[in-house]
Every structure is written in structure tokens, then in C-alpha cells.
Amino acid sequence: MPDRSVPRAVSATWPTELGLRVVHLWLLKAVGTTLFMVLFFQAYFYVLQHPSRAPWVMPEIWLDRLVPFTPAAFPVYALLWVYVSLPPALIGNLRALLRFGAWVGLLCGSCLLVFWLWPTRVPDFGIDWSNYPGLSALKGIDASGNAWPSLHVATAVFSAWWLYRLLQQMGVPRGWHVVNAGVCVAITWSTLATLQHVALDALTGALVGAVFAWLSLTPADLRLSQRLQQRLAQSRST
């Protein structure tokens, strides 16, 4: 479960620690993240193309009317694939890296099972998507299926909580936490602004991501490996 201890004070050596974390096991992180995404998309599109029954249309609620259609939100929507790569990049020990991979795999697998058992899609918004090339390609591939819960939002929230704890462990300035939260909120907003999801999808996805983050985070897993601790201590003494 997440550490509820007092947040670590801002550290003068956090940039050094951040660099050490990034280069630690970098090849395993790069290959593992890439392989995970390839396997995920294969499973995702299989479920999308082979639903167990006809998709049910998700209803809109009052919150949907507060978020206008914004084609310019597409780059923010696509930012997720960079964002979810940040937590593994900053993990400083093998155990935590494997734990993160296992839990995010369980998160994605659970949502894919829901998508297959209870396929859903967003309403027909009556928009000529050919007027929006980027979104048109996305709609053609995704067909706005696998809507509930929003796995886009779930993985963003899951990553945000892991990043929060990793940044807290490093003792970064508060501004970094603000940016982290802002990116997560922006990605969530983009799922509604691009009409890829409705509010019920996003709200449920956020809940799923938060629950999986709460279950997966442990203080011991977030610490540096012994080798990195030694290297950080050496950098402080020079």
C-alpha cells in the first residue's frame, strides 16, 4: 500500500538521483516497455474486433456538456504513451520495476476482460470526422469501442500516482508534482474533448487507476537499489 509517511524535504541532489534512476537498467526498461505496448495493442485490437456481443452505447451525463469538442486536444490524448513510460524510467530497483510491470499488466488485463464481457461504445455524435484528419485516423482504428471504463484514464491515473511517489522519494521541488498532476488531468480531459469517451467512462477509469495504484505501491519498492545508493552517496561526497 502507499506510504503515508511525511513527504521528504526537497533534496539538493535530486537531479543527480533522477539521472541515476533513468540510466539504471535502461535497456531492460526500454525493451520491456516497448514489448509490453506491442503485446497490449495486439490484445486490445483483438478484443475490439471480437466482442462477445453487440456493444452497448454509454449514456452521457451533465458533465459531458461541460467539456466541448476540441480537436486540438488530440496531441494531449496521444501524450499518454509518453506519460506511462515515465514511471518505469524512474524506478531505481529491479523488484519495483517487475512489480510495476505486473500491476500495470493486471490493470490492463482486467479492463480488457471487461471490454470483452461487456463491450461498450460512445454515442454517435454526428460529426464528420473527415474534417479532422488526426481524429479521423483514430476513429477509424479505434471505432470508439472499448469505452467503459476508460483504460486511457485508468493508466494515466495509475502512472500519476506512481510518479508522485517516485518524485516524492527523490525530494523534487513541489512544482514537479503540480506538473505531474496537471498532465494527468489534461490527458483525462482530452478523452472527453476528443469524444473518445464520455464522462462515465473517464470517472470509472480514474477510480480503477487509483485502486490499482493504491494496491501496488509499497515504500520499499520505491527506494534505490544498493548500488545506486552507493553511487548517490559518492556524488554527494564529491
Rank of each mutant, 00 (worst) to 15 (best):
A96F: 08
G140N: 15
L98V: 07
A160P: 06
Y77A: 08
V82I: 05
I141H: 14
G175V: 03
F115T: 04
P88R: 00
V178C: 03
G105C: 13
L135N: 09
A160R: 03
P123I: 01
S144R: 14
L107H: 13
C111Y: 11
W148F: 11
V179K: 02
D128G: 12
N146W: 10
D128Y: 14
C108I: 08
W116I: 04
L106S: 13
A147G: 12
V82P: 03
A137S: 11
L98M: 07
Y132R: 10
N93T: 00
T120A: 01
C108R: 04
F125V: 04
L98K: 09
L80G: 05
S110K: 07
V153F: 07
G175S: 07
D142N: 12
S150F: 00
D124W: 00
G126P: 02
A137W: 14
C108Y: 11
A156M: 00
L163C: 06
G109N: 05
A156S: 04
A147C: 10
L163K: 05
W176G: 03
A147P: 13
I127P: 12
G105W: 13
W103N: 14
T120H: 02
W148L: 03
D124K: 01
S85P: 01
V104N: 15
H177N: 11
P173Q: 06
A89H: 01
N93L: 01
V84N: 00
G175N: 07
K139T: 12
P119C: 00
H152W: 06
L135W: 10
W118E: 08
Y164C: 05
W116P: 10
R165Y: 15
R95I: 05
G134M: 07
A137E: 14
F158C: 06
G126L: 01
W129Y: 11
P119S: 01
W116Y: 14
L86V: 02
G109F: 05
L138G: 13
L138Q: 13
